[in-house]
Write a protein that binds this DNA or RNA. Sequence first.
RNA 1: CGGGGAGUGGCGCAGCGGUAGCGCACCUGCUUUGGGAGCAGGAGGUCGGGGGUUCGAAUCCCCCUUCCCCGACCA
Length: 645
Amino acid sequence: MAGPLGGPRGGPRRRSGRRFRRVGQTDRAGRAGRAGRAGRPSRRGPLACDDVLLRMSTLFLRTLREDPVEAELPSHKLLLRAGYVRRVGPGIYSWMPLGMLAVRNVERVVREEMAAIGAQEVQFPALVPREVFERSGRWEDYGDALFRLKDRRDADYLLAPTHEELFTLLVKGEYSSYRDLPVSLFQIQTKYRDEARPRAGVLRAREFVMKDSYSFDVDDAGAERSYRAHRDAYERIFARLGFDYRIVSAVSGAMGGSASEELIAPTPSGEDTFVQCGNCDYAANAEAVEIAGPTRAGGDGPGPATSDSAPGPQRVLDTPGTPTIATLVERLNSMDLGRSFGAADTLKNLVVKTRAPGAADWELLVIGVPGDRDVDMKRVAGQLEPTEVAPAGPDDLAGHPGLVKGYIGPQRLSELGIRFVVDPLVTEGSAWVTGANEADRHALDVVRGRDFFPDGELGAVEVRDGDRCARCGGPLQIARGIELAHVFQLGRKYAEVFDLTVSGADGRPVTVTMGSYGVGITRAVAALAEQTHDDLGLRWPREISPADVHLVATGKGEEPYTAGEQLAAELLSAGLRVLYDDRRGSSAGVKFGDSELLGVPLIVTVGRGLAKGVVEVRDRWSDERVEVPLDGAAAEIVRIAAGQP
RNA sequence: CGGGGAGUGGCGCAGCGGUAGCGCACCUGCUUUGGGAGCAGGAGGUCGGGGGUUCGAAUCCCCCUUCCCCGACCA
């Protein structure tokens, strides 16, 4: 497969014997092996169609002039129009040849970087017997998002949404000594999730390709090294693919575990909300964000409703018909109390119920937040994990006459034996208007630390643009993005469930600690399209592009085609991947339009310039065009291509 | 699951009681060849499904179903 430019096949040097491979050594050998002779990434992968000339005349491709109605996002429209994907059903897509090349390129980069940290590839079935998931509890826990099916004997199966169980079982079956560890395994496979609402084409599909890896270590220090190695590898992967990405703190969600970060591609159309500090480098998923307490009193900025003067004694007011913050504020302002009130002056108390793992019963929990704020249930759930949280319904409140919906206050909660926490925005000493725990009455000047004493603080408030960074106090900015990858320390959850232990140095069993690291492969293609497209079409960085050069032959007679044919051959033998538009029946306009749509980073036109003995070379990124003599064009094009991202 | 919208050739759409049409794409021929060509000819549709009303239904009524968008949800 190696071409003139490729040199030896990229990838890590093979070493004999597992014991020499160490996760965590991001060895230079692996990285160096990746580079081709010209200092460019090697394009010689076993899966890339590097050595064949892609001819538009025979390529299985039909571009669309109009946007399909099903598509909303630019990436979705363009991938359809450019003939990269076709929709088969909701959240189910076929990949056509050009799309496949892009997918394979992402996979190749991922494989190279995984190999570079010593991770080894495996393959698992997508079809998994129920028992496997029953043991981890996920047959139930995964809910409706799990595709379930039956075989002819009526036995239950599922289409795996991810493979923690199988990775764990596989290692358990093979390894039994601490000497075997660490080890990192990965797969690149199709996964299935019955999303409630698939959308945005391939970005959020029900069947998609994902690279998933798991690390297995004897101790936390090892787990930390494995985590670091994967995190570093991911940075290299997304940098090579040409992404603009951020690393943000995350909650590990249903997987459990501790350290957790996401790699996010910022884009306005992304469906993940994250937060970044305008001052320091703090960034977090909106659900995992930490917000500093308020730095000043009063006002409508982030801060409590404390008035500047010391609050007076608590007073109970008749406030009939004010079960909501809006109605309460209106009523207060019409009561001639000598001051005006805003939503931020009220304390809103939300009742939820929680259930500790293994517990049979739900327990009530009241969360107090400033009245102008909403509670972010995901954020709450993330902090309470693994305890479950759910909104309390009327049935849950039934046995508690002290909790009057719309008029709940924290004053008597401890007497009632109900747990109460506040958001840190409700500071010690701050005064609030809040429910009086009887219908149609509220209490004024209710002071934390005097009139009520929360059992603790819990960051519960929905983050808002301008909230203060918990690290440096700088202003937080909210942005949208697409989740590209997630790295987290799984800990011992699956190892315990499946009893994955190895003998320690002292001969006693040690439970293995795991890390989990995912990359959305097919999603990455769409996410990159979303980030890099322009008005004319797709625009790929070289690593992911189906070709290095899009060669267009156009003009009268045979000359452009014979010259094009020869140039294509030269470029190919110079090690470039060439998409050659040799269609005779298509007009120049069609060919140019397609060349812009398809997104290959370099467009070379063999046409009217032939009269002067030149071809036009156009950079799809900068739109810069230069004429180069046909004689020696291949070498010049190689040179230009090498300078591209 | 809640709200909104839509199912008519491959794609985008019109038609809204009287024998199914347009643009793009496709096929044949001639012309054309640096910005989505021209002329001529052609192929392709159980109008999402079922039931009803009617002399007659893509069109009106009922039921079902699918898809798209927003929200809820989502390693």
